[in-house]
Design a protein around this nucleic acid. Structure first.
Length: 806
DNA sequence: GAGATTGTCGTACC
DNA sequence: ACAGGTACGACAATCTC
């Protein structure tokens, strides 16, 4: 008998429930829980009667070991369930199938949850923390571990693995091969590895003079691949990182290894990386070692706080680390390789791994806290979407209330749900103009607090009184409906949201006194779950789908914001705009004290945790007209704070699919106006830009328009400029498909815009007309319009490609 | 065949 | 399929006279 402590990194359920991890002295461990009995539930009137029969059920290797009646809760309703324990992990599928056939009155639950997830939930175990296995050492010849123990498993600490061994990897490929349709035909010419524990290396197979000390020369691509495998094995990482490595590096490496028939031995199972392909997206997974695609996490669970136009390594590194990639012309890589002039490219290759590692280290607290909260292994948690995070959190919390986890909906139901939609937020038409002295108020976490205050949950929904009565809701057919939510017992969803908000408040209290990145990350993890729960209930693929709940939340939110606007107006406040949970007020003769009083008064009326907050005061703000109309444009305004910070919403300035020249010009105009500069000066500035455009004084890069393909090329029914350039890029060897970024300049020529798009390198002359009439003027005309120019002036002048008559 | 209208598409706001 | 709805505006496609 031995007792081994280890940090649990990865789980697997084949015949056994296996946990892979590292001991405190960095030894690889496999632990098998021999006490774990997989189980599922049966609901139904007959469970008492059928208990005996089911407990004797047997089919081939699978058999029921025990069947017990348990008190459980299903959609918050107390009931009895038959818990069916089985002899092994695969038995669930087999036996569930049998029971469904033989006893159709029974409703089976929790048969659609993978065994290791059930295991983690049932035993309240958290990956990445310190666990202990107490049992017997067993043979492990097929595994690359130092020790394998089968026995009793417990978690002994909440602390997360303190100093994991991390290794980042990046490859460069000859040519312009993205591993697309033609399929990874070009060789890998360099591969960099950078470790957290003082390790860096670039492996390449073209020798050059005065190599950097981290270069390792080999003789061929095959030798490079073998060397890389050897180095990874030797480094013994806990996490293997890449940037877009699910989609590129690892699938590519796999294909090239296949070509040379190299068998990788990385991973605790000696079997290398496995690429799983589902719905067009590939995922690269290892046993024991957690492969983390840093891109997936940054562009997924971190996308809301980061809020970047692009999640390329360069952009993300600049944002998080303050420095970007090594500047080289990567298009010249093949040419330089042929000449043997690749020193700079090796540095570039190394830097990609360094940045990947450093970004990972920067966001590690966020990943760790999500893992702790959700309770899923890091490999999965780091790839989860917001919806999956919510769902896994709810599943985990079910255990605390003995709640049975609802089924995942079948495809047909998902499809059916997707057909329906519901009404969302209220957006008020703003009063256009340049306003002085504004204040923005907003509801703190409006949707979560409404959910709590009105006890909105799938289980508390009623079609008849009594209960909290929603405002009238128009359904798709235009009929008016009202829902009710039970007032007596708190539902599962509100209960969990309340808990999250309270935990977050406690954390905020602590971090106010003593700042802590870890607690901030924990707070952010909680916020992520709370804010996504409303959207989750409206998501067709959700286990806890409840469209009535989502539509009730938005209905009450509309009511509260409308009421707030009305109350404010009753007290003679000038409300000029509102979107979802915020109101903008022009102070005029009102004082700040008046605003504070109004907030206080409003909060006295608001139920439960609902709260109106002061967002900020602003010196000035500009709201513009909709193009060609005399209505205010929603979701489009710019503000200046008392500290002269400019805040811009919705304008072309903040849109990634406009040229830099238009964005910058608009920004500068907004800034001048908000700072109180006379409009004539701003106009002069615009005329100068137009002049520069006319005289070819503008850099090409300022003219580039970048956007993204949302579909595959053959799915477009309308061929716009971005689709036209995508076709050209495809011809040039770019991998083009849904999600690909594309960029172009509009060149001179006649016909449609799409007929004149060109790649920046290939463009001879840009279209002055296009950039003046379709970029600069549209971007600034709406601003000048609110400053007193008439619509007619602008429309007339637009035709003349000039603002000269202003 | 030019101008108005409608539909598609991408990106932003909350 | 991988949280939701609301909104703007460019451009292409289609309609209208």
């Amino acid at each position: 008998m031995v007792k081994i402590q280890f940090y649990a990194l990865d789980l697997e359920s084949d015949e056994n429930l296996k946990i892979y991890g590292k001991t405190l002295d960095n030894k690889r461990v496999c632990a098998i829980d021999k006490n774990y009995k997989p189980s599922f539930y049966a609901l139904g009137k007959d469970i008492e009667k059928l208990k005996k029969k089911i407990s004797l059920l047997e089919e081939d290797e699978s058999k029921v070991t025990e069947a017990l009646i348990e008190d459980v809760s299903y959609y918050d309703e107390k009931t009895k369930a038959l818990r069916v324990y089985t002899n092994n992990l695969k038995a669930i599928t087999v036996l569930a199938h049998r029971i469904r056939q033989d006893y159709p009155t029974l409703d089976l639950k929790e048969t659609d949850i993978s065994a290791y997830k059930r295991y983690l939930i049932d035993n309240n175990l958290t990956p990445l923390t310190l666990w202990e296995v107490d049992g017997d050492i067993i043979n492990h010849h097929e595994l690359n571990v130092e020790i394998c123990v089968s026995g009793k498993i417990t978690q002994v600490s909440d602390d997360i693995i303190p100093n994991p061994r991390v290794l980042a990897l990046d490859i460069e490929v000859y040519g312009f091969d993205f591993g697309g349709d033609k399929g990874s035909v070009e060789p890998i010419i360099m591969l960099s590895l950078v470790g957290s524990h003082n390790y860096k290396k670039v492996i390449t197979w073209k020798r050059f003079k005065n190599p950097q000390n981290y270069i390792e020369f080999v003789d061929s691509e095959m030798a490079l691949l073998e060397k890389a495998n050897e180095e990874i094995l030797k480094y013994n990482p806990d996490y293997l990182l890449g940037y877009f490595s699910d989609g590129f590096d690892f699938p590519y490496i796999e294909k090239r290894m296949k070509k040379y028939k190299i068998k990788s031995k990385i991973g605790y199972d000696n079997k290398g990386i496995k690429i799983r392909n589902n719905t067009g997206e590939s995922i690269a997974k290892l046993k024991g070692i957690s492969h983390i695609d840093v891109y997936k996490f940054v562009s997924g669970a971190m996308s809301v706080p980061l809020d970047l136009d692009s999640y390329s390594l360069d952009i993300v590194a600049k944002e998080l680390l303050g420095r970007g990639k090594v500047e080289v012309n990567i298009n010249k890589l093949s040419e330089s390789w042929d000449k043997g002039d690749i020193k700079k490219f090796c540095e570039y290759n190394l830097m990609d791994s360094i940045l990947t590692l450093e970004i990972f280290q920067k966001i590690l607290p966020n990943i760790n806290e999500l893992v702790k909260l959700i309770g899923s292994p890091i490999q999965e948690t780091s790839r989860m979407t917001y919806g999956q995070l919510v769902e896994h959190y709810l599943m985990k919390r079910c255990r605390d209330f003995k709640e049975i986890i609802p089924k995942r909906p079948p495809r047909s139901i998902v499809f059916e749900r997707r057909m329906h939609t519901y009404q969302g937020a209220l957006v008020m038409e703003p009063l256009p103009g340049l306003h002085e002295n504004l204040v923005f108020l907003d509801f703190r976490s409006l949707y979560p607090t409404v959910t709590i205050a009105k006890n909105i949950s799938p289980s508390t929904l009623r079609l008849h009184p009594p209960g909290y009565e929603t405002p009238e809701i128009r359904d798709e057919s235009g009929r008016s409906v009202v829902y009710y939510f039970d007032k007596n017992k708190e539902g599962f969803i509100p209960k969990i949201l309340r808990d999250i908000i309270q935990r977050r408040n406690t954390l905020k209290e602590i971090t106010k006194k003593e700042p802590s990145p870890v607690l901030n990350a924990r707070s952010y993890a909680l916020k992520t779950i709370a804010n996504s729960t409303y959207g989750y209930m409206g998501f067709a693929g959700a286990r806890w789908y409840c469209r009535e709940c989502s539509s009730s939340i938005t209905a009450w939110a509309r009511e509260y914001i409308t009421q707030t606007i009305e109350d404010a107006r009753k007290e003679k406040f000038k409300v000029i705009y509102s979107d979802t949970d915020s109101v903008a007020i022009v102070l005029e003769n009102k004082t700040r004290q008046d605003i504070l009083k109004f907030i206080e008064k409003t909060n006295k009326k608001l139920p439960d945790l609902m709260e109106l907050e002061l967002e900020s005061f602003y010196k000035r703000g500009i709201f513009v007209y909709k193009k060609g109309e005399l209505k205010g444009a929603k979701k489009k305004y710019a503000l200046i704070t008392e500290k002269n910070e400019i805040k811009i919403k919705g304008f072309e300035t903040v849109r990634g699919d406009w040229s830099k020249i238009a964005r910058k010009t608009q920004y500068d105009v907004l800034k001048l106006i908000l700072e109180g500069t006379p409009k004539e000066k701003a106009m002069k500035y615009v005329l100068k830009v137009i002049d520069d455009l006319r005289n070819n004084k503008v850099n090409k890069e300022d003219l580039v328009i970048q956007t993204q393909l949302k579909m595959n090329l053959d799915e477009y029914s309308v061929i716009g400029p971005h689709v036209a350039i995508a076709k050209i890029m495809k011809e040039r060897g770019f991998r083009i498909g849904a999600g690909s970024p594309v960029w172009y300049i509009v060149g001179e020529g006649s016909g449609k815009i799409r007929d004149n798009v060109c790649l920046p390198d290939e463009c001879k002359n840009y279209s002055k007309d296009y950039y003046i009439n379709n970029q600069i003027i549209p971007a600034v005309e709406k601003i000048f319009m609110v400053l007193g120019y008439t619509k007619e002036d602008i429309l007339k002048d637009k035709k003349q490609s000039s603002l000269g008559d202003f």
